[in-house]
Design a protein around this nucleic acid. Structure first.
Length: 151
DNA sequence: CGCGGAACTG
DNA sequence: CAGTTCCGCG
């Protein structure tokens, strides 16, 4: 188990995923989703809606564009993004809300309860996300390297 | 749309 | 390993 030092609150392992290469750890899609969900400026694009942990992608094309932008994948689209989301079903991170279009649900209750039996679910996923991404320090767009050599 | 197999990539 | 790309099927 790990704790986020900057925010003060402990966050479960499943939400961390350190991964090899400390400096250049790739952004996880569901991290990115949570990041957008946390920012009010994207409420027209993606937002919490319905049950606890449930969210709707209001503008699939835009979310795909933003994701592609972050991953330097200019040809990203909802078809591909949704395939990535579907891989989360077996990983128990997400599942589909059947019937509701563009609607998925985080397995907060299940996974958090398993990893953190003492942590109650009073706090919304929004608060959890806020605590994890302390206010959104920086949102690095697709910018590979900035050598900036000066003499 | 939503699903999951399959090949492929860093 | 975490997607990306492509695709046939329902």
């Amino acid at each position: 188990l790990r704790a986020s030092l900057s925010s003060g609150i402990a966050f479960p392992d499943w939400a961390y995923k350190p991964e090899s290469s400390p400096g250049s750890r790739q952004i996880q899609l569901w991290h990115f989703i949570l990041e957008l969900l946390q920012k009010e400026e994207y409420h027209g694009v993606i937002a919490w809606q319905g049950d606890y942990g449930e969210f709707v992608i209001k503008d699939p094309d835009e979310v795909a564009r933003l994701w592609g932008n972050r991953k330097c994948k200019p040809h990203m689209n909802y078809d591909k993004l949704s395939r990535a989301l579907r891989y989360y079903y077996n990983k128990r991170i997400l599942h589909k809300t059947k019937g509701k279009r563009f609607t998925y649900k985080f397995n907060f209750s299940k996974v958090v309860l398993v990893n953190y039996p003492l942590l109650d679910m009073a706090s919304s996923p929004f608060l959890l996300a806020q605590n994890h991404f302390n206010g959104g320090a920086a949102t690095p767009d697709c910018s590979p390297v900035t050598p900036e050599v000066q003499i």
